[in-house]
Amino acid sequence: MQEAAGRLVSNTKIGKDARVMKILCDAVARESEPGHFVMIAPTGAYDPLLKRPFGIMDADPPYIWVYYQIVGRGTRLIGEKRRGDTLSLIGPLGNRFPERERSTILLIAGGRGIAPLHFAAKRYAEKNKVYLVYGAATGDDLHLGERLPRLGIAKIYEYTEDGSRGSRGNVCLDLPRIVATHGIRDTFSCGPDAMLQALAGHLDGKTENFISCEAIMGCGFGICHSCIIKTVTGEYKKVCTDGPVFRLEEIAW
């Protein structure tokens, strides 16, 4: 974890409000693992004040890649940045998905939740058998669909709510069957809260289930206590430093 300046190499539009940034920042890239995130400043000034959190989609030193959607003023300003611009960032932050070898892993991605799972697919596919379930509202929202086949994923299942690509429905639709068919031992998931919440009802308890949570954050490194999530024991945990990766069964929805 460190404060660093990154040089923006590219900020490529890959969908209506979706972009992928390639950032030159060796110090952060070298320490990045699947599940980690970075905080990036929207401006060099103080309005908006806070940095924004982004899951790391890929790292290959000296570069990291960040996939993001423009959802508000901060991400809109980041979307306007150009090649050569300097970005103020802090990272890598948070915990990571657990290390695995010779496991059979199912990645479950909802919408922009694909970001850390893209990185996980790349890092885990060599030593594990990796499958992916990827869902979004429409085919156009499966922004990383074209980039996934090169990651060594054994099979990709796609779902859209409108049926415009893959199967019609959400990522939970065929989960028990997919888990049974491939003998899945671990699941890594990332997506909207409603999706993560729904997963519990579709995973039968024979798999180890890890989820990466999203939260509005103040600092990203454990100081402000803003990004809390409630656990089944009733205590709050910080998404930024206790997570963002938690066990599915640990969270009280």
Partner: peptide, 19 residues
Amino acid sequence: NGNPSPRLSETPAGLLNSI
């Protein structure tokens, strides 16, 4: 335990907190 979520809201050049 502190207050329930949300605990933070950004404002022009500032932020509101209710930690």
